[in-house]
Every structure is written in structure tokens, then in C-alpha cells.
Write a protein that binds this DNA or RNA. Structure first.
Lengths: 219, 219
DNA sequence: ATAAGTATGTTGGAATTCCAACGAAAGAGG
DNA sequence: CCTCTTTCGTTGGAATTCCAACATACTTAT
């Protein structure tokens, strides 16, 4: 339980909150922790949710499967980050996505109304929390827009280059590693795995990049 | 100025605010109105913004042009709706998109910090406003996700069907009109206009839909 | 009414992607 | 060490998209 609190202390949702007050706050929010195994479903498309999650350890993916079996990965959420909050605060009836654990994970859940509404105990956290939440949701919005900038490209080659460029920029250099295997990367870019693999080879032959497993270098 | 206030009264940002207090609130926020001509740029990609806009009349589009000249339409914003708020609250340095007026429009601008921070005059609006804002940004997030559900489809035909189905559902029937011309629809779906036009004809020949200008009917 | 400009539908060939299948390489587990 | 499973690269043909070009409405301005 020690390291979990450390994760929360540095989580964006709790910036500006005194670490010493964190436990009191969590109990005020009646937050609860649940452990998930690899591959388990956290939220299932179609259901209604009024709570959101924070990843304490492990990782979850926000995905969408159509009835042809094509999977689209919309987002990958690591430790300290939130998932489901936009759908909870948008108050939609049917979740258009699913959330799955990609590895053994500990997730903390919080009721979204409990966080937004000023509480009866007159604790002063809520004003700060809702500002943090607005900031987080806004940044997710920007992330989605940037993902669209990548997936709006017409060819697999352009999508790859757009994605790898942003990853390089994020890493602050030409060498970086990506958090996906080939199938996941294809699902993230909305393209075919085999065609993408072939295109990666072509990019390598063209001297644009070098690649070893998930390690990339743009030349 | 009369109808402008009417627009604002029913705008999602001001739900829960007494209409009678609206003018006082606007002055507290030091909101200002600007008129734009058709085709004018409202926000330009690359700039930093600390304010957002509300469409009073007319319409704006959130777009992205790459250096091959391909335009992507990310969103279309009509009267009463907001634009730019996610980028303002995410506090990013460089705007990754541009906003343009698609027709003569009146836009109202509000400083994003002015809205979020409790004001010195101790007016009680801000708590409500920030909750509304969180709700709006969350719903935009859901909209972006739904747009991705459409654009993640691999073929033009599937994209069209996915888009038209959601429009039909939104209209609550099989007959509906879309707010785009053909080129704009192609830019919205990230496909080629001519190929899309051909695919529309094929869908018509296949008896899946009938179309007259922007009026569609799914059969 | 005429002319110019814009929007839309159509078409043919080049380029690209999709799909299925296969084999090689890397890991996991016994 | 071997087997089983998963991941990844490659390939060939079918299907689709892209691109450029052109023809036909439909609009707008003069």
C-alpha cells in the first residue's frame, strides 16, 4: 500500500493536494482498489458508468472492436493516469468503448459525482479536484486530437512517420522505444499488421529509420 | 444583441445560471464579441491561446492541413457551442489545429482563467461554470471518440455507413440531412472526394440509401 | 440571358492496402 | 533440449483507394 500512495501523490488528479491529507481525501471519496488479471475486462462497451479509474500499477487499454473483428486501440493508460472519466462526466448511457487490463493491474475507482460535488463534511478538496479534473480531461482531448492528426493520414507510410515523429519529439531525441508490439501498433494506427510490417521494412531499406524490436531510431 | 443573449441563455456553458444574471456574469468575465467573415481564420495553428470562443451566430470548423494540402475537418461548431476550450485549459504552447469561420459569424471570447478562478467580487457563478465546463469538455471527448469509431473503419464504404448511421440515430429516423458538402464530408472522413462520390453512387445502386443533395435516407 | 465559377458524378490507370498463408525467430514451459 | 505458442517479416493476388481529368448540373454575378 506504500507505493500506491506514492503513485497517487504524483498523480495529476491530486496536484495541489497535501500528501498528508491524501488518505483522508480518499476515504471521503470512498475510493476502492480492485486487482485485475491480464486480459480481464474493466469496463465493457454498452454499460453505464458513474465512476472512473486510476491505474496504481500495471496498464489498461481503451479499445473498440467492430463486428468484423477489427480492434482499434484508442488509448493506453499507465500508472498514475485516469480512464473512463470523460464518459462518466459526459453522463452517456452506453459506453462506446471497452477498457481491458493488458497485464496484472491494481486500479482505484472513484465515484465521479462524489468528486465533483462539494461534500457535506465541508472538506475543501473538491474545488481543487474539479479544476485538476478539467485540466486532465482537456489534455486528453488534445491527445485525441493529436492521435487524429496521425490517423487522418491516408497511407500506412505516412501514419507510421507521423506517429514515430511525435514519439521522437516526446522522447526528446531520435532514439526511443514504443509501448506497442506490432499488432497493437497496427490497431492503434488503424492499419493492417502485415502491410505495416512490410512498410517498416521499406522505410528501413530507404534509410529513413532503423529498428530493433520496439527500439526505433529516425535517421 | 437581443438574440445573442437568447443563444447564451440556452448554451450548455450557462445551464443553471439565472438568465437575469447573465449580463452581469458576462461583464465579470470581460467577454467580448468579434465578427468574422466567411473564410477568415479565428485561431491559427501554432499560436498559444488562453481564451475560448462561443459561436453566437454562424459556424466555425476545427481543421488541420498537412503540407500535402490534405485538409482534415475535426469538428464543426454551431451556434451556442464552444471551441478552443480544451486547448486553452490544457495549457499547450502550440495549437495543433486551426479554427476558421465557414460563414459570416459572431463569436464571443472568454478568458479561460477568468472563468475557472473564483473572482474577487465573490460572485458565485464560477463554481457552477467550471462544472458546466467539465461536462462540456467531457462530452467533446466522447464526440471525438465517436468520430474515431467512424474514421477507424478501413474502407470508404464502411466509413460512410458508420457516419450515416450515427447521423440517422442522431436525427431519430432514417431521413436526415448532413451539414457538409461532398468535399467537406470527404475531409471529415479522411477519404478522397471522388472515391467517396463513387462509393455513394454504388450504395445508391445497391439500394442501401437514397440521396438528394444533402438529404439522405437509409433504406 | 450569358458567362464564370463552384459543386458533384464518372472513369481509367497507377499505387496502395487488404487478406490469407507461410516460414523464421523468439520465448515459455516442461 | 525439445515442443508449443506467439510474434514478426514476406509474398502474391484480390480489392480498394488515390489521382487526374473531364462532363454535367447548379449558382452567382454582370
Amino acid at each position: 500500500m506504500k507505493n500506491k500512495l506514492d503513485i497517487l501523490k504524483s498523480a495529476a488528479l491530486f496536484t495541489g493536494i497535501e500528501p498528508s491529507q491524501l488518505e483522508a481525501l480518499l476515504s471521503c471519496l470512498s475510493a476502492n482498489v480492485v486487482r485485475y488479471e491480464k486480459g480481464q475486462t474493466v469496463f465493457c462497451s454498452g454499460e453505464t458508468i458513474d465512476r472512473f479509474g486510476i491505474v496504481l500499477s500495471g496498464e489498461v487499454q481503451v479499445i473498440q472492436d467492430d463486428y468484423y473483428g477489427n480492434r482499434s486501440i484508442l488509448a493506453q493508460i499507465g500508472a498514475g493516469n485516469l480512464f473512463g472519466e470523460s464518459f462518466a462526466y459526459a453522463e452517456i448511457k452506453a459506453l462506446p468503448v471497452s477498457v481491458i487490463a493488458t497485464m496484472e493491474s491494481e486500479l482505484l475507482f472513484i465515484d465521479c459525482r462524489r468528486l465533483a460535488a462539494p461534500c457535506t463534511k465541508a472538506c475543501g478538496f473538491h474545488s481543487r479536484l474539479i479544476q485538476n479534473m478539467l485540466h486532465i480531461v482537456s489534455r486528453k482531448n488534445v491527445s485525441l486530437t493529436q492521435k487524429m492528426e496521425v490517423t487522418s493520414k491516408r497511407t500506412t507510410r505516412e501514419k507510421l512517420l507521423a506517429y514515430l515523429s511525435t514519439e521522437a519529439k516526446k522522447a526528446g531525441g531520435n532514439c526511443f522505444s514504443i509501448p506497442f508490439n506490432r499488432q497493437e501498433l497496427a490497431d492503434y494506427l488503424f492499419v493492417e499488421r502485415s502491410a505495416m510490417s512490410a512498410e517498416l521494412s521499406k522505410l528501413r531499406d530507404d534509410g529513413v529509420l532503423s529498428v530493433h524490436k520496439n527500439e526505433f531510431e529516425l535517421l
